[in-house]
Amino acid sequence: MNLFFTMENRKEAHFIIENRVEELAVLFEKIEQLTEIWDFTVPLTMNINLVLEEVVSNVIFYAYNDKFKHEINIGLSLQNNLLTIVITDDGKPFDPTSNQLPDINLKAEDRPVGGLGIFLISKIMTEVYYERKENLNILTLKKTI
């Protein structure tokens, strides 16, 4: 499923991917297409791609204990210079904003190898907001571009 549309000074896109790691390639392709249409710079495209990879791969790897097919909904909108991304999944409750952020001042020897994904999201995006509604995790990310 794939939907791009544009209204006066508001652009929107929406797509759904399944909870399989192979779907990340589909996600990357969609983001490439979208950022080209929306005329994003190369660094911004990379950052948006990165943020979505971090969120969606967390969902794919950790949100489900069953083996069923699940849908991850991704919506993007651009109004004036505010980009809003909303990612919705029906996995177990997970609030990424409650995660402890890594200490980036540690020496290489002392730095833990994990925990960077959520940190990068929080640095790249201007605002990160999580809510749990019924059986859904809804993560809203905003960035002024």
């Binding site: 660094p43 540690l106 190898v113 790249i124």
Partner: peptide
């Protein structure tokens, strides 16, 4: 992981030619 391994071996690991977008990610992640 590569840097940790290099340090444990008293070796050297240098990076070069980072594109600006990649350098930015290296900067924000420390």
């Amino acid at each position: 992981i590569a840097q940790k391994k290099t340090l444990s071996l008293n070796g050297k690991l240098y990076l070069c030619n980072l594109q600006p977008a990649i350098k930015e990610i290296f900067d924000i992640s420390g």
